[in-house]
Design a binder for these strands. Structure first.
Length: 486
RNA sequence: GCUCCCAUCGUCUAGCCCGGUCUAGGACAUCGCCUUUUCACGGCGGUAACAGGGGUUCGAAUCCCCUUGGGAGUACCA
């Protein structure tokens, strides 16, 4: 099945700026982004910062920056406002929420509540004892107390506004979970505006999705239970329901919802470790969504044609670094060499690499790219394979050196290398040496090739010599052979 | 506790909606073999799963129920 073009689609990613962008958040953002691209719709970024205590605008910037790094760009947001729908920070929309809340109070669908924390706590304990969910039973629920409430407000007291939860069951047709039935009495009356005047998530989320004309809500399954409250508010508002798609959660190796204690869970950590953003999107996308042709490696633009909500998995996905690393290595392999060189040079320990000719860099990257998982592996391999003048004499290497034929090879190679006047050995020269060892020294087969390799590289294995040796500076070769003959 | 969600190889998954083509396919990881120019590349192959129990049916991984297991929610957090 291919995706359906529908430019009226509006989706959103609504992070709270309470920390770095989490990989789970990145995945949700990615799904929304992909759906917008697939349908030709609009991807909105909204900042849910109603929790003043925990929100920090610095995190907003960092999260947006991480999204940009991932290539998940939004069409509307705080920095790209559409006057019809803005503002995009909930902290700047307080009056809107208060207006809607007041309307609900006027219609009798919500009420002022002056209960203290202690009173609420007592109710909760009672409910727990009776084995049911805490359901608000305070006296402010009674319409008769409305007048008293107004009096207390006029005296300067600050009430919370509580939504009157209808006594009925609700049904959600979710795109990934199917039909979800919320029984009657699942939730009691809940606060929509705190006594400090700031609205609460479940309320502003609905108001915003409604006002911003969001057509599809793609979010984590942790919101599935919340949705019943939101359904109630949609109903009270007389607002049209969006399509919901509750994507399964990401879990750690202990099968618990992925969180900080599972190690690296924020995007910036992977960014710092030089994971490729394309690889991260690719891997994250695969955790809970499958390509119709079962493809594993792709770019965002490759799947726009086939991205549909139908292919989400209903069960939680375990985050597995091994496969992520493999995806990263595959993206390195398919990346154009010139681009790869640029990336490598932006990484650490590249002084030698940068000093070489473009031709050398190309050959080097072509040779090594099939062996690496990260772009930062290149300089590591260059150091180990090309620049190391004192290779460690491992058991495997000692064995080769102990062969009867090896000292002869070493002796010849040593002389051959010292007579080279250029900076690098050519492939032809190397072939000549091998020929010589074979013909004149009469060494062939394993002793020949293992011996030549050991003499030249100080390793018992490694990349193809005919590519590796022409990349190795002759000075290094000389010192290395001296080290080996010692 | 209560409510909701979920259940195919160790992991990600295909298949499930529309039962037979599934002695269950792919990928990561793992193991083995091959490549007498090594090798970390590549190629080939192996190990490995329908949670359990009932039903429905000629036939169930696929539909229904129960059990078990796991997850999430249960805030004047999001």
């Amino acid at each position: 099945m291919t995706s359906v073009r529908d430019p009226s689609v509006r989706v959103r990613f609504a992070p709270s700026p309470t920390g770095y962008l989490h990989i789970g958040g990145a995945r949700t953002a990615l799904y929304n982004y992909l759906y917008a691209k697939a349908t030709g719709g609009t991807f909105v970024l909204r900042i849910e910062d109603t929790d003043l205590e925990r929100s920090n605008s610095e995190y907003e910037k960092l999260q947006i920056d991480d999204l940009r790094w991932l290539g998940i760009s939004h069409d509307e947001g705080p920095d790209r406002p559409n006057p019809k729908y803005g503002p995009y920070r909930q902290s700047e929309r307080t009056e809107i929420y208060q207006r809607y809340a007041r309307e609900l109070v006027e219609k009798g669908l919500a009420y002022y509540d002056f209960c203290t924390e202690e009173e609420l706590e007592a109710m909760k304990e009672k409910a727990a004892l009776e084995g049911r969910d805490p359901i608000y039973e305070g006296r402010w629920k009674d319409p008769a107390s409305h007048k008293e409430a107004l009096d207390r407000i006029s005296q300067g007291e600050k009430p919370a506004i509580r939504f009157r939860a209808p006594k009925k069951s609700y049904t959600l047709e979710d795109k990934v979970k199917g039909r979800v039935v919320y029984p009657e009495n699942m939730v009691g009356d809940f606060v929509i505006v705190r006594s400090n005047g700031l609205p609460v998530y479940n309320f502003c989320c609905v108001i915003d999705d409604h006002l911003m004309e969001i057509t599809h809500v793609i979010r984590g399954e942790d919101h599935l239970n919340n949705t019943v409250r939101q359904l109630m508010i949609y109903e009270a508002l007389g607002a049209r329901l969006p399509q919901f798609a509750h994507v399964s959660l990401l879990i750690g190796h202990d099968r618990q919802k992925l969180s900080k204690r599972h190690g690296a869970t924020s995007v910036n950590l992977y960014r710092n470790e030089h994971y490729l953003p394309e690889a991260m999107c690719n891997y994250l996308c695969l955790l809970g969504w499958s390509h119709p042709a079962e493809r594993d490696i792709f770019e965002k633009q490759d799947i726009v044609e086939v991205f549909t909500l139908e292919r989400f998995s209903a069960s939680a996905a375990m985050y597995d670094l091994e496969k992520f690393k493999w995806v990263n290595s595959e993206h390195i392999k398919k990346m154009p060499t010139a681009e790869l060189i640029e990336l490598i040079e932006r990484g650490p320990e590249v002084a030698f690499f940068q000093g070489q000719t473009l031709e050398w860099k190309h050959a080097c990257v072509e040779l090594l790219k099939k062996y690496v998982q990260f772009t930062t592996d290149f300089p590591r391999l260059v150091n180990e394979l090309i620049l190391n003048e004192h290779p460690e004499k491992t058991d495997a290497l000692r064995e080769i050196l102990s062969w009867e034929s090896t000292p002869k090879i070493l002796d010849f190679i040593s002389g051959a290398v010292s007579s080279v006047s250029t900076d690098f050995v050519s492939e032809a020269e190397l072939n000549g040496w091998t020929e010589h060892v074979k013909k004149t020294l009469g060494i062939k087969g394993k002793p020949l090739f293992q011996g030549v390799r050991a003499a030249l590289t100080g390793h018992d294995h490694g990349p193809d010599l005919k590519f590796l040796i022409p990349l190795t500076p002759v000075t290094v070769l000389k010192n290395r052979i001296a080290h080996l003959t010692k």
